[in-house]
Design a protein around this nucleic acid. Structure first.
Lengths: 218, 218
DNA sequence: TAGATTGTTAATCGATTAACAATC
DNA sequence: TAGATTGTTAATCGATTAACAATC
């Protein structure tokens, strides 16, 4: 409990920056560095140095040392712990189309503590096939399988029109967190976490910044 | 210029919500509705009604009417215009692995005004092949092709270690906006827009919310 | 010691939400 | 008319940044 309460108190913004810190720290460690300053991290990642120090203060068990900076090995261990990369969580994926297959086949999730244990699709010709060692089951198996495997995270990569039904099935099975790649506005109970991976929103923000940049040059 | 300046003044948060509004409004239009209230939109999308009204005030040319609400057709037209969905922008994609192929093959981008005109990969066995009508070229073609096609948006779906080199090549060719799906911290000139699609960050935020929810129940 | 770097307090900024008068 | 709904001003909230004393 103490541990969970600790995790819950970290802001969303800070948590979101952790993976970038982790990547950079690992790079530096590989390059043989032992310590690093907040200034250097900030410069490399395009952040403010105070922000970096605050972020690190929240997640780290050890303080930085004036003149020296932070111990890289310590920080890496702390971030791994905070992000839960030390222990693996099971997930299921629904929608074995192009994106779904890409995600199931992505080796990188192992480093993020995520393990996809089963995939589902409505298309008869996909059922029974395997992608990267993960078997594809029929959509009607979602509820019983999620229950049986006791899975808490579901990934949705189906077309827009099916996303809500899939989400409902996942939740009926016991899923409590949904990673939604479908361009759909899911309506869900408040005790289920959602992260919408809204490509249209990302692209809109990128396009706006591009317009600003091109406009500033004129 | 007036038009661009207008676009530039809209906040990132507001722009990011537009695609969700658009999807919901289109649904309602299809269902035969003519007008809609900010309250209804807010409820459906899990937002605050004042926030919805402020967002709509920023992008719309017409005001809502007390008692009636907003005209759905108007709003759809306004959002399409603001997001630039009326005219198509060309882009190139580098990295024809699982994720890259999924993105190139995704029909939905057409609705978002994005048109992928060429793909690149370092793997000899992929070069010359086509995905969804888009041809794959060798990595050494990036600079000349981007120059020739006069493309401003580049999508990166290569492994971490190659991302920086690919970004440099895209920029050398003239790209001014990078949509980065690689788990890498790109270092870029300030006159290039970037949107990092950091899966690890998304997953970290989702996991944290899940932990909070499960913790609250105890 | 001198100076680089830390951690913390206060100020600023941006976005969200509350309160409420205006109006169809 | 009465009431639902708008648009706007002020308050709040959360996150970032500036200022600065502490310290290795």
């Amino acid at each position: 409990m103490g541990n969970n309460r600790e995790v819950a108190s970290i802001s969303k913004a800070t948590i979101g920056r952790m993976p970038a810190y982790l990547r950079y720290l690992k790079e530096q460690e590989k390059a043989g560095e032992k310590t690093i300053s907040s200034t250097q991290i900030a410069e490399e990642l395009g952040l403010n140095a105070v922000q970096v120090r605050k972020d690190l203060a929240v997640i780290s068990t050890v303080a930085g040392k004036p003149k020296l900076g932070f111990e890289i090995g310590e920080l890496i261990a702390d971030i791994n712990r905070i992000l839960g990369y030390d222990n693996v969580t099971d997930a299921v994926l629904v929608g074995a189309g192009g994106l779904g297959r890409a995600l199931v086949g992505y080796e990188g999730f192992k480093n993020y503590g995520l393990n996809i244990v089963a995939a589902f699709d409505a298309a008869a010709e996909l059922i029974g096939r395997e992608i990267g060692g993960v078997r594809i089951y029929g959509a009607e198996e979602i509820v019983p399988m999620v229950k049986r495997l006791n899975v808490r995270i579901g990934i949705i990569t189906v077309p827009q029109g099916e996303a809500q039904r899939v989400a409902d099935a996942l939740i009926e099975g016991g899923v409590r967190a949904i990673w939604n790649f479908a361009p759909a506005n899911l309506v869900l109970p408040s005790n289920v976490a959602v992260k919408n991976e809204d490509m249209a929103a990302s692209l809109a923000i990128l396009s706006m910044r591009l317009a600003e940049i091109l406009n500033n040059e004129k």
